[in-house]
Amino acid sequence: MEKVTKILFVVPAGLFLLLFFGYPVVKNVTMSLQEYTSRTFFTGEAPWVGFANYVTIFTSNLFVPSMVNTALFTVGSIAGQFAIGLALAVFFKRRFPLSNFLRSMLLLPWLLPLIVASATWRSILDQDSGVLNQFIGVFGVEPVPWLTSPGVALIAVILVNIWIGIPFNVTILYGGLQDIPEELYEAGALDGATGWAAFRYITWPNLRPVVSVVLVLGVVYTIKVLDIILGLTDGGPANSTQTLSIRSYQESFVSFEFGVGAAYSNVLIIVSLLFALIYLRANRRAVDE
């Protein structure tokens, strides 16, 4: 009896996870093996087509570019967020008047709805009248077609995503820095390790577990980003900002090719799961140490 009551505590959550995570994952696998289009919604028929949808995506001339863009977007965003985030975390480690207040206000970009960030940056990056081009124009730089040139758009999208991710990186890395015992720095200072040497030989090795968690979590979050790209470029111009998640969205909800969209989703899941495994290992190490 007692055992039954105890189990009742987890039943709602268990059911929810099964219906809203388990079912979608299974459904994506079956959908990707079916011809699942807008017609399916009228006729109820979704013929099995084997791996035809996967053949479609792997032979699509958008597959390789979207893989490459996903990789560039993820690596570029993470590298920028992490480098700037770490620098700011180290900076805010000092105590100075207002340091806590300033650091917590830094979180704001991360808390805004992503679509708000996209809208704001679209106005800032506008080629003709955006403030960024006005600003660089002061130094005699020609207006840059940030979001309208296929050569620049991906870089612009990455820069915006770096801006969004910095606060998260600062917060987690700052937390990691706080956990490094002050005595280590005092002992290091006696041996002459200050400044860069202190960072290299004390901060970095002790921060490593937190660093791996931040990086892997960053990858898992970044790889599936949709809002920012849809809001800024919609995957354009000339498909220059297509990623795996944009492809999946557009195949399913713009072309109503749910089978093809699901196939893209499954590629995305496999990539995410790979990083999830790395995350779990990194996290376990972080907890152990």
Partner: peptide
Amino acid sequence: AALLAILISQMIPGIVIANALYTA
């Protein structure tokens, strides 16, 4: 095992859920 499942569920891309939920 439950905690592991919860951690992994957080990593499932939203578009995967949206694809399936739309039809359901």
